[in-house]
Design a protein around this nucleic acid. Structure first.
Lengths: 284, 284
DNA sequence: ATACTTTATGTAATTTTATTACAGAATTAC
DNA sequence: GTAATTCTGTAATAAAATTACATAAAGTAT
């Protein structure tokens, strides 16, 4: 139980709590901001329970005690998830839905930042460094992510391409060779074309990195699965925060790549940046 | 002095602090996370000062006392601004650069969330709703953003396209008509092809929305300028957080669009979502 | 239904933590 | 060099949180 979702946790587990814990939960949910500022005695009084009950409540939610609980509660308030339901409602106006959309993105970034497996990141960077060729595959929303990835990695002086065409994907994965790296991006991790390509590529000795939901089919089929769990209700409207997190993870990988290449590599990067100058008007 | 910048405040005012306050500041800056978890006695010991000195330090920074200080410090850590300089350093390892990249994105999202002009958002949604056609233009990194935007807006049952080809951009803007909406995405706001297209489109009576840096050439030339100021050192390496913020803003606009269309429109969205089913393997 | 077990909750003591009041030291101004 | 001011620590006090324990409530088995 991590502190990102402390408030959500309280809400979700509410029914499983016992009488006095429910009182405490209600008091906190009624005004979380206030709770972060009050003493245990105060909150106990407000909830109508004893101080140890509040303390026990805090420990039940995986915190060291009341002060620690307040701290984590305060943090979870900043990251935006004020209430369990920060989903957009049909009758929201601009001042309601705008912060909600931002909050969702912020919340998921904070969550993933704390969950991400650093040693896995390192391993994927290794793979990127040692790959003979890199292919980014994605469809739909993830197609835009794949394109963005290519836009980043082509600067790194190695053969990179992105593909959004399922026929091309089939052909490339059929022709995969050891040393090739197939970087598959799929939020659902169930997109047939992507899974099939992952199978083929791997059968031909290439390595597969999957950027996807935890435990998805793609995650299972990948040599390296970057598993990203976002809070969005995937099916409704359209995916939003998953691709944001995916992009940031690609930034992390790109950064890791550059740093491992060392300072000399920056000259190369600089050369590429300089090339853009003539495409821009000068400042005012 | 607000809590978003507590750490920055400490850093900025460091030189104006007196001897023992400096010691406390150093101890906190050395490991802010740790500071949020320790007692006043602990921190005092670590800083080599007395407990009241720590307490006075806290009050000097506008907090009620040590516990309140810890709370605000913890909050400011979440929102990402760990250090004044949370830029990646050449000798950073994976556990250093990974959170930094995330923090930068989070920090900028929080900042823009609080700065964004809601009435402007509403106006742009109006434009999207009344447009006869919508074109998303972007190059390089913003090309990926434009692609993502198209991927979202094509669901809305109106003629939308994205373009990353400067010749096509010229032709389309030359052929622009009243009722057309040109949505220009450019972080620098100085990309010639984009500026020229904005000029042409506007000359032909089309409306131009610019998603760009405050005060940029594109901002000035747009009918509606969504101005986004991000903290990244644009020129180094490659743009990262600007495109993240741009994507979230497009999510906001798309959401605004859907909500204005009303509940019936959800059936249309649902139809589109359903169409994807056959492209996916079923869950396990 | 009653006795037994388990779980839940509060009281009171203890411990930890933070704050205040004050005094002595250091610094500055004259 | 003395007085005023500012800084900083010690020790006392106050506040807050936690623990240990006892009682009460709920659940279970006979």
């Amino acid at each position: 139980m991590n502190y990102q979702n402390l408030l959500s946790s309280i809400n979700v587990t509410f029914e499983t709590l016992n009488k006095s814990e429910k009182k405490v939960a209600s008091a906190i949910l009624a005004d979380p901001e206030a709770a972060t500022g009050s003493s245990i005695a105060n909150l106990a009084k407000k909830a109508g329970v004893s101080e140890p009950s509040v303390n026990r409540f805090c420990k039940r939610f995986g915190t060291a005690g009341f002060p620690d609980f307040k701290l984590k509660l305060a943090q979870c308030l900043v990251s935006g998830v004020k209430f369990v339901n920060s989903n957009v409602q049909l009758n929201d106006n601009v001042s309601k839905y705008t912060p909600k959309i931002f909050d969702n993105a912020i919340h998921d970034l904070v969550a993933i930042k704390n969950q991400i497996d650093l040693s896995l990141v390192e391993k994927v960077v290794d793979q990127l460094l040692s790959a003979r060729r890199i292919f980014f595959f994605g469809l739909g929303t993830s197609g835009a992510v794949a394109r963005d990835a290519e836009n980043k990695f082509f600067r790194f002086d190695l053969p990179v391409s992105f593909h959004v065409d399922v026929l091309t994907m089939r052909m490339l994965s059929a022709a995969a060779k050891p040393g090739d790296l197939f970087f598959m991006i799929s939020h659902t991790g169930r997109t047939k074309a992507i899974i099939d390509a992952a199978d083929d590529a791997q059968a031909n000795g290439a390595r597969v990195v999957g950027l996807t939901t935890p435990g998805s089919m793609l995650a299972k089929k990948s040599n390296f699965a970057l598993e990203v769990s976002v809070s969005e209700n995937t099916e409704e409207y359209m995916a939003m925060t998953s691709r944001i997190v995916h992009l940031v993870i690609l930034d992390v990988l790109a950064t890791g790549f550059i740093l491992r290449k060392g300072p000399d590599f920056l000259n190369h990067m600089e050369k590429i940046n300089r090339s853009l100058k003539p495409t821009r008007y000068k400042n005012n």
